[in-house]
């Protein structure tokens, strides 16, 4: 599904500076109750956010429950953010809750791919910059075309793969991109069918 295009975003970032936040912490398996991509926001960070496992009483000490950050669209995270199982539900839960960007010193590779596919920007900047932003505790602006994060007069550059950037900027879906190559795919398959007919099932099963 197409995501909203991502151009610039201004928001107060929510600090969650812990290293190795894994996908099971972002959304525990027990919270994945439906077969769809939605209905996951309530399970976001459930293990930290509620005071009992499977419960729904807010743990007031967890930052997500701090009203100051109620409208945050950016998470300020620790290193190796999104490690663990490849479950895309982690990113769906973040997106459904309303986050559009995660800023961290490093990310798990599969998580990064999942972010791009779902309209979330994972931006890498160094821990010192993250500490500065955390300390300032005020709104920052992310400008994707300039690949810049700015806070007052300071700014930090982040790198991003060209294709991923284009996808985010235009709200494009990878499937749309690939379907534009339908002719290449068809002619490749035609040639391949002659070489490996057994791959193409259907007629004789």
């Amino acid at each position: 599904m197409m995501a909203e295009p991502f151009t610039t975003l201004t928001s107060l970032p929510m600090p969650l500076i812990r290293n190795n936040i894994d996908t099971d912490q972002i959304i525990p398996s027990r919270e994945m109750k439906s077969t769809g991509k939605t209905g996951l926001a309530d399970g976001l960070f459930a293990g930290w956010r509620y005071d009992t496992i499977g419960g729904r009483n807010s743990n007031p000490d967890f930052v997500l429950n701090n009203l100051r950050y109620a409208d945050s669209q950016i998470i300020l995270g620790g290193s190796n953010f999104g490690c663990g199982s490849s479950r895309e539900h982690a990113v769906w839960a973040l997106a459904e809750y309303g986050f559009r960007a995660v800023i961290a010193p490093s990310f798990a590779p599969i998580f990064v791919g999942n972010c791009f596919r779902n309209g979330i920007l994972p931006a890498v900047i160094d821990p010192a910059a993250i500490a500065t932003i955390e300390k300032a505790d005020c709104a920052i602006t992310i400008n994707l075309s300039d690949q810049k994060i700015s806070l007052d007069r300071q700014s930090w550059f982040f790198s991003i793969d060209d294709e991923a950037k284009a996808m985010l900027l235009e709200g494009l879906d990878a499937i749309d991109l690939s379907l534009k190559m339908a002719e290449d795919i068809a002619s490749w398959q035609k040639a391949d069918r002659a070489k490996r007919p057994w791959i193409y099932l259907g007629a004789n099963q």
């Binding site: 490849s86 690939s178 398959q189």
Partner: peptide
Amino acid sequence: IGSSEAEHAMATGT
């Protein structure tokens, strides 16, 4: 693979 990739693989064969 992830779920979106599964959609991609089914829709495009790639």
